[in-house]
Design a protein around this nucleic acid. Structure first.
Lengths: 198, 198
DNA sequence: TGCCCGCTTGGCAGTGACTGCCAAGCGGGC
DNA sequence: GCCCGCTTGGCAGTCACTGCCAAGCGGGCA
């Protein structure tokens, strides 16, 4: 639970193996038949596990795809808060996203997941919902970096800046997915933010 | 279907009456017991209609709350496109939202709906999903108002501007809801956008 | 007036995601 | 070899949602 990286116990690793096995099976089936057409029963059977246990690893069908966002949120928060005090809110958030982009394993797999999410409305809705959680997580750090406001408005200002950065990340990610992964995400993000703040 | 306002036929109005009756029943029950604890069966029974018919009026439980967004999207698109050519993308979008704010009936009812949406994660996810549809609708009009770009990037720039405006509307709306409706939405929006573009 | 046609409605049975409950297995400590 | 805790699997149930079909209702037309 804490920030200290408790090294993975044997138990953790076997759990991770099961999770990975379910995930791979599911992604294969999603690619073959589409997300909606694939049932939990089928994933469970092909992964050699009971339906009941599958739900113990992934609370929902959507979480099989969007699940790892949970941990990443904590990494984002920590990174943003660790930025030097001189950094503006914009710079701190950008640094956070740079770390996130490097935190993913193979970029190929990330592209596959992201494409699936952006092409499947319910998945995208879930994804957005989780990103909203991220916004709440970084909000304090962003508020602390805002120029001191006058009224009860600094809250709104901080929320607006945070939401804008996420919106630009979203726009950049969408363009990245539509380019089939050939474009550079960081460049797209900078372009997006420039269009907004220019 | 067209833009011409075909005046409501008798049939339309009886349909509207049923819709309103279901909606009112549902909102009352949601307020009394919460959204998740209220079942479709209960809403149908109290509204004096069969479950099957309820689903013919509202495709999903979420749409009972988020349903009217569908038509409003068209209004938004038309308004943005109708802005003078000299208006910037920012101004055109702002004008669109001003019209939307006036399009709602009683502000009290709007506050009730919006509060429910913002307090209920699945509803907010659905709401965001529909707003994404709005973004797609206005995208062409926004692209047309962007300063001519160099590469394949004007798409990203337009998407970023659009997404940012929606993000600011969201931040403003959230603050408005949290204030219990006492704050002024337009003022909050201007404050939010100023924080971003300042 | 009586019939017919189209549309709306309601019931029914089914699917698919998800949950609670309980019994069986399995591993490690003693 | 035994016991204890945790994980697993199966079962039955709930809830949102869908397709199908049969019944009702209203309006047009002879």
């Amino acid at each position: 639970m804490g920030t200290t990286a408790t090294q993975p116990s044997l138990w953790d690793r076997s759990r991770q193996a099961v999770v990975a096995s379910i995930f791979d099976t599911a992604m294969r089936l999603f690619a073959e038949q589409g997300y909606e057409a694939t049932t939990i029963a089928q994933i469970a059977k092909e992964a050699g596990i009971s339906q009941r246990s599958l739900f113990r690893y992934f609370g929902t069908k959507e979480d099989i795809v969007c699940g790892e966002q949970e941990e990443l949120g904590e990494l984002l928060r920590a990174t943003v808060e660790a930025q030097p005090a001189a950094a503006t809110a914009w710079e701190a958030l950008r640094a956070g996203f740079e770390v996130l982009m490097e935190a993913h394993g193979e970029p190929g797999k990330l592209l596959e997941i992201t494409t699936l999410i952006f092409d499947t409305p319910p998945l995208r809705a879930r994804y957005t919902q989780k990103r909203l959680r991220w916004q709440e997580l970084v909000q304090p750090a962003v508020t602390a970096r805002m120029p001191a406001g006058e009224g009860p408005l600094p809250q709104v200002r901080a929320a607006a800046v945070t939401a804008t950065v996420f919106a630009c990340v979203d726009a950049a990610t969408e363009a990245w997915v539509r380019s089939g992964g050939s474009a550079d995400l960081a460049t797209l993000y900078d372009e997006a933010l420039a269009a907004v703040r220019g």
